[in-house]
Amino acid sequence: ANTMHGRKQPYRVAELARLMYDDMLSTAEVLRRWKGEEDEAEQEDVDEEGQEDELFQRRKTVSDDEEDRIVPKLDYAALETKWTDEENVEALRHRFASARLTGANGE
């Protein structure tokens, strides 16, 4: 019970409202906390910093992330498996007006 209690429930709206304007945190950190990924991710960060020398770090800062994107980068291979899965497809059907559960091409 303690482990369940101690872990904050992710994706809570009230939590985001609190974190959103906390200027001590970067936006990436806010989102990571909100999604409840904080523990693992932070652990990894510490490890990485310890190993990599300074020169490499500096190069990393001028990566692609510095540019604004509108279209997000997506992992299309993962999406393909997701949208060929019947369960996901059925779940999305209710968002479409012509939702006949055995659609036009339904089996």
């Binding site: 279209v71 997506l74 999406l79 997701k82 949208w83 999305l92 968002r95």
Partner: peptide, 20 residues
């Protein structure tokens, strides 16, 4: 296909406004 998947993803995210 990729474009269609991207569209499905946007619809799935829901809400009245897409991230674009």
């Amino acid at each position: 296909k990729k474009c269609a998947f991207q569209l499905l993803e946007a619809v799935e995210q829901g809400g009245c406004v897409s991230n674009i």
